[in-house]
Design a protein around this nucleic acid. Structure first.
Length: 588
RNA sequence: GGAGACAUAGCUCAAUUGGUUAGAGCGCUGCCCUGUCACGGCAGAGGUUGCGGGUUCGAGCCCCGUUGUCUCCGCCA
């Protein structure tokens, strides 16, 4: 038996007990005579003391211990000498007086100290197995485990069956770019790694499973971000004979249980709701952070006859003029103005008009173009006071909303507006547009995915080709400005699905080639169904309050999709390539 | 595909306007130390300042290029 107790188990009540512990040397304090080590395992730390007069051999060997050596210790639990208890340790009342020390394995000096703040993430990822020994990382993995366990219990209680779906699947190049896997048995043909179990879960509904879920790995060959990774995990679920309200109630209950179990937080349900249109209009985002105000206000009517050409021009071209009031931020520095302007430009704006309200005066390059009635409208609707900063956007509705939404968020950070991670502002965003026009490709794309059901009352719009007006029976769940999940009611009728594909520019032949399985399945009594997928990694970022998605994943790839630990991707042998019928082209 | 920031000892960082032999803390090595828990003391090793080029009497610092990392835009059905 390697151990009788863990390193976070012994207490005063165990004094006198003969025990065996095993773990890593977390710290050695060698006084020449008496030697202390902190022994660490998964559960915690226990101080071990070596006394030369009691066991000379063990003490002698203890002189040579180093950090992260793996040892086994036999000894007796003793009360610490009065005044030397350590209240910082759960086991701080006692210590183990070692009678025997067995070195199970030595450790070389570490490339970084486990108790230090390491900013070099490459190093942490290269030695991830060492990084994982740090308590916060272990805690993140435990939290992840709790989330998975609670999810399985909850969905089981509601009659959901966990079904695994293939990872090697078919390339259907709508949506995210896929990872392709060459086939040995079918020369020149490829699998695609599943970017989502979407089509399989719909086929499960046709299969009469009725309620499915999976903690599913999804693969997307897109550029990562701080909160995005190419290999992500989703709580994926789908149910038949349900409506939007059923999914919403189910997910609210699930999230409440997850936050109770992982954070001990009580989540108020039901969550507030906004339509996509409202969310964009008022907050400039389809995933607004509701922990602070600063809403976008529309001034299109007020500036209809404006002398200011930028505003007037935008309105004449069917656009909008909107503004936000950054309360008390008139003291913005020139550098900050430049930063906000660059943010606006990178978000699609031509520039960023602003007014500083200082010493009772409106300071701005544009103020000379404003008439008294316009000023009065601004003053009233933005509740302008001394010290405020007004920021404007003018142009196409969606661009203006997006620009001001990003400005809103940045201003909140610059102003130090409260963004308390324990303030959980959940939100449903409903009625997304079914499709979005892609000017670059000159075609309509599905906003969610091509299987999303149009709202029933909007189906005639779809049939008339008024694609921009068609709303989807789709819903996103948002927490503190982060989209943590999205889903929809699906199309279950073959003819409607065919029309939808056609609207997305997929002609009948391509439909058959790519989606024959689905269209065929819909011919045999497909039930009405819908579902949702929640991103576990992002959810954990919010639960653990970490800004880096890699910190909640045991073995993440870096932001370039490279695995520093395994050094993948890597070159393969000519023989492997031949088996796969592949030839590498020389790079130019 | 585009933009920005960063790169100095094993780690975290410093180095005044371009100026002597690039420093500190932690870690590492050796010695000392019997109640520490960020133990302490003494001594020591450790650097092609990412790489390449340029300007200069002189470059960690300025310029150009390049590589890597991170962040953002595009992208993410």
């Amino acid at each position: 038996m390697y151990r009788t107790h863990t390193c976070n188990e012994l207490r005063s009540s165990d004094i006198g007990r003969h025990v065996t512990l095993a773990g890593w040397v977390a710290s050695r304090r060698d006084h020449g005579g008496v030697i202390f080590i902190d022994l660490r395992d998964r559960e915690g730390r226990t101080q071990v003391v070596f006394r030369p007069e009691l066991s000379a051999g063990a003490a002698e060997a203890a002189h040579a211990l180093h950090d992260e050596d793996v040892v086994q210790i036999r000894g007796e639990v003793a009360e610490r000498i009065p005044g030397t208890a350590n209240p910082k340790l759960d086991t701080g009342e006692i210590e183990v007086v070692a009678s025997e020390l067995i070195i199970l394995n030595r450790s070389a000096p570490l490339p970084f100290q486990l108790d230090a703040n390491v900013t070099n993430e490459d190093l942490r990822l290269t030695y991830r197995y060492l990084d994982l020994r740090r308590p916060p990382m272990l805690q993140n993995l435990r939290t992840r485990h709790t989330l998975n366990r609670v999810t399985r219990d909850y969905l089981d209680r509601y009659g959901f069956i966990e079904v695994e779906t293939p990872i090697l699947s078919k390339s259907t190049p709508e949506g995210a770019r896929e990872f392709l896997v060459p086939s040995r048995l079918y020369p020149g043909q490829f699998y695609a790694l599943s970017q989502s179990p979407q089509q399989f879960k719909q086929l499960l509904m046709v299969g009469g499973i009725e309620r499915y879920y999976q903690i599913a790995k999804c693969f997307r060959d897109e550029d990562p971000r701080a909160d995005r990774i190419t290999e992500l995990t989703q709580i994926d679920l789908e149910a038949s004979f349900i409506e939007r309200e059923d999914i919403i109630r189910l997910v609210e209950g699930l999230l409440a249980e997850i936050f109770r179990a992982t954070r001990g937080a009580e989540v108020a349900t039901p969550f507030p709701r906004l339509t996509y249109r409202e969310a964009m209009d008022r907050f400039g985002s389809d995933k607004p952070d509701m922990r602070f105000g600063v809403e976008l206000v529309d001034f299109s009517e007020a500036f209809r006859e404006s002398q200011f050409k930028v505003f007037r021009g935008a309105l004449d071209q069917g656009g909008v003029v909107k503004a936000i009031n950054a309360k008390g931020f008139a003291g913005i520095t020139a550098g900050q103005v430049e930063e906000l302007t660059n943010l606006a430009k990178s978000s699609g704006a031509r520039g960023l008009a602003f007014i500083k309200v200082e010493n009772g005066e409106w300071k701005s390059p544009i103020v000379k173009f404003l008439g008294e009635p316009e000023k009065a409208t601004l003053r009233e609707r933005l509740a302008i006071e001394e010290g405020d900063l007004i920021l404007f956007g003018a142009g196409q509705w969606e661009t203006v909303c997006t620009v001001l939404g990003r400005i809103r968020s940045r201003v909140a950070d610059l102003c130090g507006l409260e963004r308390d991670p324990s303030d959980l502002k959940f939100l449903w965003v409903l009625d997304f547009p079914l499709m979005a026009y892609d000017a670059a490709e000159n075609k309509w794309n599905a906003m969610h995915h091509p299987f999303t059901r149009p709202k029933t009352e909007d189906i005639p719009l779809l049939e008339r080709g008024e694609y921009d007006k068609v709303r989807a029976e789709a819903y996103d769940v948002v927490l503190n400005g982060v989209e943590i999940g999205g889903g929809s009611i699906r199309i279950h009728e073959g003819d409607l699905q065919t029309k939808q594909f056609a609207a997305l520019g997929i002609p009948p032949e391509a439909q058959q080639k790519l989606f024959r399985h689905l269209l065929e399945a819909f011919r045999y009594g497909a039930p009405p169904h819908g579902g949702i997928a929640l991103g576990i990694d992002r959810l954990l970022m919010l639960i653990t309050d970490t800004p880096n998605i890699r910190d909640v994943i045991a073995f993440p790839k870096n932001s370039r999709g490279f695995d520093l630990l395994m050094e993948a991707p890597s070159a393969v042998s000519d023989r492997q390539l031949r088996e796969l019928h592949l030839q590498i082209r020389k790079r130019q």
